[in-house]
Structures are given as structure tokens and as C-alpha cells.
């Protein structure tokens, strides 16, 4: 019998057999509450992991794409300097393409700080040249020296490179999110194991009577396993729903939003939390099964 069919068999259950184990006991509330709380945390860990992943991808993307050259010069010389820079870039190995940003594009960049209707022509704003690298990249130091020699007002601003540690940090945050998920599942398994052991110990007399009338250990274990699996599933489902609601109520993430406001699911990612109750149930199934057989073996 496969693991899946065993789980389905347990979930399907047998109404008559299900009644042989009494429903009383603190372990019911303990399992429900623990599963709900762990699922709630798991949803946040999952959101953190996915958001970190998106952030790392975005930053990586930006890194691979561009750097910028800033040209400061008197207005009268500006166009000549821009053409000079573009000429240098055309000859630089590792540069895929280069273009000067238009005034509209520069206005859009400054708008978040200075507001709309910025009179760009009245301000001594430097011109920006966007440089797209080839996959091999260019020799930044060599380019910097050439610009200093030929176009003194031009400064290579490879500001995207400081994002590398941030990308690493975001990637590690994503890994930490998944590690947190594993730890949460491990904690769920530990709590369910303790609750199951407690329930088994509290029902020693029931187990004795069942054995005397011919119940096999697998039958007794299944009664406990089914109960704890369903409790974990329902508790985790409730915790997951609450977690998703809490995530949905976080401030929306726009272009200007920071990382924390981006802690959410995006599109199809909203389906991922469905895994949380399923994983909780599978964890509870194996944890209870192991605990039940271990405890039953220790009973005379």
C-alpha cells in the first residue's frame, strides 16, 4: 500500500471504528491550537520567502541589465559631452548598448522627490547615459580611466553593483523562509507527537480492552492517527485562512513600496498556502503513526 493510499485510507476512516477511542482530552484543543498557530506562522514564512525571491530576482535582473554614466557639464557643452561618451562606449568591449536618457525619462526619475511639473531645463541636472552590458560585462576600471581622460565631466556610476550583497541577502532571506517552514513543520510534528503520546497514555485502559477483544495494534494506531491527522488538518486550515487574511490586509505593494509592504503573495502564489494544511496533515499523520506504534510496543 502506498503512503498516499494509506493517508487517504486513514482520512476516509470507519465511523464505527472511529468511536472506539474517546473524544475527550486536552490533546484535542492542544493539537488544534498548535496546528492553527503553526500554519499561521508558516503562511508568513512562505510569504517572506516568496517576497524575498521576487526581490532577489528583481535586483539580479537590474544588476545584469545596466549601469549609468552621469555627465555634468555647462549646458552649451552638454550635447558634445554626451556624444563623446556614447562614442567611447561604442568602442568599449563588453558594452552591449548605450543611450542617453530623454528629458522625460529624467523628469520621471526625479518626480518622486521633486513632484510633477519639474522645470528640468532650469535646473543644472546632469545628463544620464544608460549602459547595457553584455553577459561578460565590461572593464569598469578601464572605462572609468578613459572617461576621466577624455570626458572629465562624466562619471561612471555602476551603482547597481552595490546591489550584489543585497541580492545575496535577499536570496538568503528566501532560504531562511523555507528553513523556517521546515522548522515549523518540525515543531508541529513534535507537538503532535507529544499530544498523541499523552492521548495514548491517557487511554491505556481503552487500549487494553481493545487488545483483549482482538484489536490489532495497527487498528488501534489508526484510530489515533486519523483523529490527530484530521485535527491537524482542520487546525492548520483555520490558521492558513487567518494567515492569508492577515497577509491580504497588509498595505499594498506598489512600485514605490518598500520591502515590508511587498510581503505578500502575487498572482498564482496565493495558491501556495494551500500546501500548508496538507503538509501539516501529512506531518501529523507520520508523527502520530510513529508515536502510536512506539507507545503501543512499550505497552505490555
Amino acid at each position: 500500500m502506498s503512503a498516499l493510499s494509506r493517508i487517504l485510507d486513514v482520512l476516509q476512516g470507519d465511523a464505527q471504528a472511529d468511536r472506539v477511542v474517546p473524544r475527550r482530552g486536552h490533546s484535542v484543543q492542544l493539537t488544534l491550537f498548535t496546528s492553527a498557530a503553526m500554519a499561521f506562522l508558516a503562511v508568513f514564512a512562505m510569504a517572506l520567502s516568496l517576497a524575498s525571491g521576487r526581490l532577489a530576482d528583481r535586483w539580479s535582473d537590474a544588476l545584469a541589465r545596466s549601469s549609468t554614466i552621469r555627465i555634468s557639464a555647462p549646458p552649451i557643452e552638454m550635447d558634445a559631452q554626451v556624444w563623446a561618451v556614447l562614442g567611447i562606449l561604442e568602442q568599449t568591449p563588453g558594452v552591449d548598448s548605450a543611450r542617453a536618457l530623454t528629458e522625460d525619462e529624467q523628469r520621471a526619475l526625479l518626480e518622486p522627490w521633486f513632484g510633477p511639473d519639474l522645470p528640468l531645463e532650469d535646473l543644472p541636472v546632469p545628463r544620464l547615459v544608460e549602459v547595457i552590458e553584455t553577459p561578460q560585462g565590461y572593464d569598469a576600471e578601464g572605462l572609468r580611466q578613459r572617461l576621466a581622460a577624455e570626458v572629465p565631466g562624466a562619471v561612471l556610476d555602476d551603482h547597481t553593483r552595490w546591489r550584489r550583497p543585497l541580492v545575496q541577502a535577499a536570496s538568503r532571506l528566501r532560504t531562511l523562509g523555507w528553513v523556517s517552514m521546515l522548522l515549523i513543520l518540525g515543531s508541529t510534528a513534535a507537538m503532535v507527537t507529544l499530544a498523541a503520546q499523552s492521548a495514548l497514555a491517557a487511554n491505556r485502559q481503552v487500549i487494553r480492552v481493545l487488545r483483549l477483544v482482538g484489536a490489532r495494534d495497527v487498528y488501534i494506531a489508526r484510530a489515533f492517527v486519523r483523529r490527530f491527522t484530521l485535527r491537524a488538518l482542520s487546525g492548520a486550515a483555520a490558521g492558513t485562512v487567518l494567515g492569508m487574511i492577515a497577509i491580504a490586509l497588509l498595505p499594498g505593494s506598489g512600485q514605490q513600496a518598500g520591502f515590508l509592504t511587498g510581503l505578500s503573495f502575487s498572482g498564482g502564489e496565493w495558491l501556495w498556502p494551500i500546501l500548508v494544511p496538507l503538509l501539516s496533515a501529512i506531518t501529523a499523520f507520520w508523527a502520530t503513526r510513529a508515536a502510536a506504534f512506539r507507545t503501543l510496543r512499550s505497552m505490555p
Binding site: R19, V20, P22, R23, R24, Q205, V206, R208, V209, L210, R211, L212, V213, G214, A215, R216, D217, V218, L296
Partner: peptide
């Protein structure tokens, strides 16, 4: 084994002196 004992007990009817039952049934 435990399973073999369980199978054997399914072929036996035992009246225990202390008449143990499941109190919730």
C-alpha cells in the same frame, strides 16, 4: 507476535472477571 495474538483472540470469546468495557460506548 502481537498481530498473531490479536488474530487468535478474534477466534476466542473471553469473559474477564473484572468485565472491562469502554466507558464511552
Amino acid at each position: 507476535s502481537r498481530d498473531e495474538i490479536a488474530h487468535a483472540r478474534q477466534r476466542m470469546g473471553v469473559v474477564h472477571q473484572d468485565c472491562e468495557f469502554l466507558d464511552h460506548l
